[in-house]
Simulated assay, not measured.
Amino acid sequence: MNANNKIELLKAEAFDASLDGKKIALYTLESGNGITMQVTNFGGRVVTLWVPDKAGNYEDIVVGYENIDRYLNNTGERFLGCVVGRYANRIANGKFTIDNVEYTLPVNNATNSLHGGLKGLDSVVWDVDKVSGNEIHFSYTSPDGEEGYPGTVKYKMVYTLTPDNEFKIAYEAETDKATHVNLSHHSYFNLKGEGNGDILDYMLTINADKYTPYNEVNIPTGEIASVKDTPFDFLTSYRIGERIDNDNEQLKFGAGYDHNWVINKEMKDGVEFAASVYEPSSGRVMEVWTDQPGIQFYASNWFDGSFNGKYGKPINRRAAIALETQKYPDTPNKPEFPSTRLNPGEVYKQTCIYKFLTK
């Protein structure tokens, strides 16, 4: 897809399918002010997201597939555009303890359980409870013991495109037994358009004085470290490629940036600015706002061009950016980190906003 001022939507028929007796479909949302998004209820995936550049030309800026079969068969990358959970990010050794009971999860990332295990919230069909021109309401009930997690958990998730060209995600969850919940969104963004080059010239800002260093299998050590005088200082805007391959142990562990930053929070629960990324050639800017304490920046270091996106272009190394708002990795095993425990009678809530503009 070359830059032009036209939006080319995927056909809904390409997403007509069923899984585990539940219907999968494709839905189209519009902000009313220039942004169009297509989503499927298989994993709550954002499949296309059309955003104008500074000249009014449109590109689809998320990595995805052109039909449901490629998602179901995982033809390249599992976590494209989806919700991740029950637990976003990594849990060490796939184990945690609640009230002296140890729970064991599937290990699917070195020695860790990642993004909910083998069949997380990205791999189930969500119910669509309501859909309008700019908003879709999802729900899903995860049974007790699913992927090893305790408690029957009822999830609600609302995607909204606002007139301010925001993609807003609101999550809720309730449980009947103490468990851990940490949700996030996992779109891979390329502000030049899917498959159109890498992200190394993007200018990134992260509103964080600190980050959580990790060990060689990407599990936090428990330290909350200053970003000062490190390649992790994005308090002022830096070009992503400027320091990504520095001689730095943390960058070597992640093959580049794949870390959690501790957001500078002024309010305990309110939505605040977390990060922004600016792509100079198109003028596109994406801001990230959240009420969560952490944001994971992943520079798609492990993509290698072995799969194509929906327009036939290979998705090469560092061809997209993921900015995932959440609590910190391995929090169930790190009592010093913000807790992800959810008890009966409590309601987990989270808001994440991706806002699009140009300059």
Rank of each mutant, 00 (worst) to 15 (best):
Leu9Gly: 00
Pro293Thr: 11
Gly151Ser: 00
Asp304Ser: 10
Gly64Glu: 00
Tyr65Cys: 07
Ile35Leu: 12
Lys6Ile: 07
Gly64His: 03
His115Tyr: 12
Ala299Ile: 03
Ala299Thr: 14
Trp302Tyr: 15
Ala173Gln: 06
Ser142Asn: 02
His186Val: 09
Leu105Phe: 11
Thr358Arg: 01
Gly133Phe: 02
Gly43Ala: 03
Gln250Pro: 07
Asn246Thr: 02
His115Asp: 11
Phe234Val: 05
Gly81Pro: 14
Glu102Ala: 14
Arg239Pro: 02
Tyr202His: 15
Ser226Leu: 08
Lys130Ile: 03
Ser281Gln: 15
Asn74Trp: 09
Ile169Val: 15
Val217Asp: 02
Phe42Met: 08
Lys228Arg: 05
Thr230Cys: 00
Asp233Asn: 13
Thr97Pro: 11
Lys313Arg: 12
Tyr155Thr: 12
Ala322Leu: 01
Asp258Pro: 02
Leu72Asp: 02
Val277Trp: 02
Asp69Trp: 06
Ile244Asp: 13
Ala320Met: 04
Ala88Ser: 09
Ala110Thr: 07
Asp229Gly: 10
Lys228Trp: 12
Cys82Ala: 13
Ser123Gln: 15
Val262Cys: 10
Ser113Gly: 06
Glu102Phe: 10
Lys265Gly: 13
Ile169Gln: 13
Leu118Arg: 14
Val107His: 09
Val101Pro: 01
Lys154Ser: 14
His259Arg: 00
Pro293Asp: 08
Lys95Met: 12
Thr290Ile: 12
Phe253Arg: 06
His186Pro: 09
Thr111Asp: 15
Phe253Met: 01
Leu235Asn: 14
Val262Ser: 10
Asp16Thr: 15
Gly345Glu: 04
Gly44Tyr: 07
Ile206Asn: 02
Gly241Val: 08
Lys265Val: 08
Leu251Ser: 07
Tyr149Thr: 13
Arg90Ala: 01
Pro314Thr: 06
Gly241Pro: 03
Asp209Glu: 15
Asp233Arg: 03
Asp122Ala: 07
Val158Ser: 05
Pro150Ala: 00
Phe79Glu: 14
Ile24Phe: 12
Asn190Tyr: 03
Thr75Gln: 08
Gly270His: 11
Thr221Ser: 10
Ser226Glu: 15
Pro163Asp: 10
Val46Ser: 00
Tyr311Trp: 01
Ser132Met: 00
Ala170Pro: 02
His186Met: 09
Phe189Gly: 10
Met37Lys: 04
Tyr103Asn: 09
Thr48Leu: 06
Asn57Met: 10
Met286Arg: 01
Lys119Asp: 03
Asp127Cys: 05
Asp209Lys: 14
Tyr202Cys: 07
Asn218Gln: 15
Ser276Leu: 00
Asp269Asn: 15
Met37Gln: 09
Asp269Arg: 08
Phe15Lys: 10
Lys192Trp: 06
Tyr214His: 11
Thr236Asn: 14
Pro332His: 01
Leu191Gly: 11
Leu114Gly: 08
Gly345Pro: 11
Tyr159Phe: 14
Tyr71His: 12
Gly117Gln: 04
Met267Cys: 13
Gly64Pro: 06
Glu324Ala: 06
Asp99Thr: 12
Ile206Pro: 01
Asn93Thr: 03
Ala173Gly: 13
Gln292Pro: 08
